[in-house]
Design a protein around this nucleic acid. Sequence first.
DNA 1: TCAAACCGGACGGATCTCGTCCGGTATCCT
DNA 2: AGGATACCGGACGAGATCCGTCCGGTTTGA
Lengths: 156, 156
Amino acid sequence: MQITRAAEYGVLGLTALARRPLGEVVMVDVLCAEEEIPRSFLGKIFQNLAKAGIVKSARGSGGGFSLSRLPGQITALEIIEAIEGPIAFQRCLDEDLGCEHSGGCALCSLLAVAQNRVKEVFHATTLSDLAGRHIPNSAVTRARGKSRGKIPLAAA
Amino acid sequence: MQITRAAEYGVLGLTALARRPLGEVVMVDVLCAEEEIPRSFLGKIFQNLAKAGIVKSARGSGGGFSLSRLPGQITALEIIEAIEGPIAFQRCLDEDLGCEHSGGCALCSLLAVAQNRVKEVFHATTLSDLAGRHIPNSAVTRARGKSRGKIPLAAA
DNA sequence: TCAAACCGGACGGATCTCGTCCGGTATCCT
DNA sequence: AGGATACCGGACGAGATCCGTCCGGTTTGA
Ligand code: SF4
Ligand code: SF4
């Protein structure tokens, strides 16, 4: 019952991208430094994001990634499903290669509801929402290094 | 992003128990047969349920498990958390040994909401709800064996 | 031509999942 | 008392998944 780190890093990396004007091309090295994510891992994750059409990739020198849409038009659901695959609480809810029991199963009905609730939440949240209430990891660790105290909140 | 089989089996086993009058003592062998669950696995799962106070265990010959409360007073949340541990979408949401970033993280706020949605759903569903809309696995496979067709729905 | 940057798959250690097994203990029956 | 029965609890192990890393290949710009 957990989101993977890949999804977590993906979202974090995208917020770093969303902080910039639309279309600006940024290398994964820069994103990694800002959010303190292992470099080669984020590279791999962004490949999926590119394949899903959420970011555009530019190769060669001066290349990198750029958002392919406005942050307000990218939902958290899209991002997470692009990275983790479709969210499915149970095999019967994903593909129909699930068990034959589906028709009369106590769990299926319960899990279907629960799963749809989280999909709703993820669908209603956009990348710009996320970026808005986010403080980059690098800023957090810098502050912690200096003052060993509270981190000032962005929206407070 | 999945419920484990242990939780699935646990719920299924409990519905089998809930089909009987309150307090009736049933061996795990019987529960397993009804819901077609590996025997030694369900035994292990019911140990957790006993520890959580959801079922009572009776040892020795003629022993087994019995519900310790009315099915209407046992929530799905209880059952699942007894088996899987607390529902936590992310380490920072579980214990406070999470990352220092919590204060300004884009994900924490999103995941906290999503997680609470599923907790609500699980909390609002009781074992009697589940048992009511459930057809035992053994009945399903028997029907499939005979007719190779549709399984009649309980509530339709 | 050369260097920069992504692409894509292979790989490996760590952890978790799904069970099984077995000796121990409590209970009941005779 | 002596079995037989059934849960207890921990160890074990095969397999899958997670978390990254690595490296050779390809595209692009200078
Ligand atoms: S037993 Fe129920 S919840 Fe589990 S896979 Fe089958 S239909 Fe789905
Ligand atoms: S980065 Fe955010 S979501 Fe992830 S563990 Fe830290 S506070 Fe929680």
